[in-house]
Nucleic acid binder design. Sequence first.
DNA 1: CGCAAATTTGAACGTAGTCAACAAGTGTGG
DNA 2: CCACACTTGTTGACTACGTTCAAATTTGCG
Lengths: 250, 250
Amino acid sequence: MGGLESVSSSCFADVLSELVDLTGNERRALEKLEERQRHMRRGAVLQRENEPCNELFVLRKGLMMSYVLLDDGSRQILRFHFPGDMLGVSSAIYREAAETLCALADCVVCPFDRSALSDLFAEHPRLATLVLVYTQIERVALTDRLAALGRTSAKARVAALLLDLRSRLRATDKSVTNIFALGLTQEEVGDATGLTAVHVNRMLRQLEEEGLIAREGGKVTLLDERALARAANYVNRYEGLDLAWIPKPN
Amino acid sequence: MGGLESVSSSCFADVLSELVDLTGNERRALEKLEERQRHMRRGAVLQRENEPCNELFVLRKGLMMSYVLLDDGSRQILRFHFPGDMLGVSSAIYREAAETLCALADCVVCPFDRSALSDLFAEHPRLATLVLVYTQIERVALTDRLAALGRTSAKARVAALLLDLRSRLRATDKSVTNIFALGLTQEEVGDATGLTAVHVNRMLRQLEEEGLIAREGGKVTLLDERALARAANYVNRYEGLDLAWIPKPN
DNA sequence: CGCAAATTTGAACGTAGTCAACAAGTGTGG
DNA sequence: CCACACTTGTTGACTACGTTCAAATTTGCG
């Protein structure tokens, strides 16, 4: 995908360094979390809801999702995960995982022990603050989706998903423009937006008929981002941060 | 409400000490976050969406909620906040608040500066881990609601709200039984569950007709908690924790 | 007591779900 | 290379859950 990728030894450090400049020591400490690697095929499950989970992960390559199953068999996708994301933090505090982690494409993940987190914080308190900041950005993304599911139309939710996926794809791959492969089935889009696959199909068609998007060969083109964002109540949560209060490294 | 309340000098420390035993030093450090107090009347706004927010808060007394407004004017309540909760963490990382914090009853809150968090983590790394654990319990509660809004019926959402409110009330006040005042209008229940006030009313009536709850004088009685939990896919997220990996204090 | 807010109920409507059938891809093994 | 199975996408007809609108009633409170 578009030339050489600079392969850092810590994907998570790359994400955090978008927030503040990291010191060499901090980088090296983060690299320890990604010493081990595990390859996964599309469809493979890394962690299953209600099963013991002793590890956390950094996603190094690929695309994953976390979801829960309700007892009528329906599925709610909670979050899509991109390279550099830390996975399984919320499950790590329970005896049994709160959500399932599943690969949507061939992936590379780096597993690490829960205690590695406390160790990290003990030696690098500023990283503790940054990890908290990272999890809170996720929290705001989750509450945005909560509001979307609770209070917006089917069309708005689908539009919001398209915008969000595109901007998160671009965060890891600058070459992504307004045309991209979404890499999800309509069923998966439905499970993320709280809709049926049938209705997702209708909403995509409607967005297409209104000239907001185009579709061809599994690729989506965002034709009118302004109108999409308006239809979707979309806010990019990676902008507008204020981290000036985080102390300089010692 | 039911006798003398043990007034600790840090409500948040009380919450964390449900997770692990705190040292005297840790407690004293947490007390610093609650040195200042501010009283608020029911309906008062502590922080408004899209306005600058320089502070975080610990809720010491009362009941609050956080919500967002969509541009069609509808409201989504994100979370109810009880004594001992830390508020405004996610907004503190932005220049402008991501959500509004509003008092549902007369409240006492303790404001503190964002930098107090980094300072706390620098001196007490174990508290950094505990704060992370605290925010992740909240995360799981949010994803439970995300799944409820996306995939469950109106009746299930209302039932889940009743169960959740009761168990969280009881967490701060052990005298709460299966009968309690919910302290919310049906409109507020609707804004939390993604329903209209009218439909909330019908769902409450239906739960009543089915013998799952009783209502009288603004108080709700949970008559059949088992059946309610079944109807609601309810999981108590304050159980099942595993924090044995957190190191002992030095 | 009198007013405003909250609750309750009914009727009509509309968004999204369900069910079903078919088309278009996608991958596999013969 | 094709036949086959299987997943995914597409479309239509019908259903139903929850909304909207409106009006009456109850509750809380100054």
